[in-house]
Amino acid sequence: MPLDQEIEFTLNGGPRRVAVNPEMSALTMLRETLGLTGTKYGCGEGECGACTVLLDGRPVNACLLFAVDCDGRELVTIEGLASDPVAGRVQQAFVEYGAVQCGFCTPGFVMQAKTLVERHLGADRNAIARGIEGNLCRCTGYRKIIDAIASVASAK
């Protein structure tokens, strides 16, 4: 498949030009073209949330997003959160509250959790649980993930 579409977008705060093919998902572009492997392939159909990224500030599944549709937009991946203060607190809480086991789903949860915290949900556990209903985890049983997010959300 020829890489015949040039797109330009902001990736993790910096401008980026990439040649992609029209069928390519943003997930494939991130992982294979750009080598950003923190965004995970879990299902490829928007059911698991392991590939959650921020598109113009909103969390979306990168597997359901055409790479070409990133043109002119702003994309943030887990790698782009290294110096984000809210994400830093979320990551620290995930570690301290035991919200990480195999960790495969964790980057997606962190992306989603960061936006939940920024939406000022407070420590309402039901609202947090609804907020992460699109992220599957097979290891933890979710309770510690909700604990971690609630701790950051209520500390705000």
């Binding site: 928007g46 949330g49 909103r58 979306v60 359901l64 997003l65 609804r130 907020g131 209903e133 699109g134």
Partner: peptide
């Protein structure tokens, strides 16, 4: 409808 991530797109 689906999940937050899907509702956004």
């Amino acid at each position: 409808f689906a999940s937050d991530q899907v509702r956004n797109v």
